[in-house]
Amino acid sequence: MSSSVVAMHISDGIINAPTSAVFGVVAAGGLAFALAKSRAQLDERTAPMAGLVAAFVFALQLINFPILPGVSGHLLGGALAAILVGPWLGSLCVGIVLIVQALLFADGGLTALGLNITNMAIIGTAVGFGVALALRPLATRGRQWLIGVAFISAFMNTVITSLGFVLQYTIGGAAGASLGAVLISMIGLHALIGIGEGIITALTVGAVASSRSDLVYLLRGAPQHTRTAAAAQITPQGSAS
């Protein structure tokens, strides 16, 4: 079988070899940097949590949901991972998922691995976390607020990640196609996928926050009462100014 509907990432030969190689270097450098930055954060609680987040993202990426008749989307996971375990561990989680998928499941080309990692593990996680961090004052107000912030972060993660592919295709696309058409199709479809990504991320982050708000990286460092508020069903009154 040469093409399969369960293939989900960039295949080999869509972006030319030199461009793929450059993004391979970008991806390797990005993951190495994330690895160095994440070490200090690892302990006997965050290490298993991050491993589980990677496994959870792998599982969720299998769930293609309909966005249009005959067109599906699936979670990318950068915002989800970053909100739960932070940007450094988060990008490593998504990177590990992509490496396992490419090596074990023939999903995502081997020479395209750097392209896929750059888009989903680095750009997606950075954008997802950046939006979440900017909205963190809202996220600590209560559980509904956290869920809303998770949705927006995940939506932005999906849309901007799709622009990563457009950029790579602009630099080294191996076929002639109108860039404008590619840009519009990618943004349009990924805005729809982003809604699904937002819902899945919001549900997951909300579930983790309601049982273990101390394990939600985005809430870390927030005063205990606001963390409790983020875990509670009801938004607190007054004190959580």
């Binding site: 989900m8 949901f65 989307g73 699936h74 729809l192």
Partner: peptide
């Protein structure tokens, strides 16, 4: 899972 190509494959 919805057994159709994802957004990227569609494009």
């Amino acid at each position: 899972a919805y057994p159709h190509p994802d957004g990227l494959d569609t494009v």
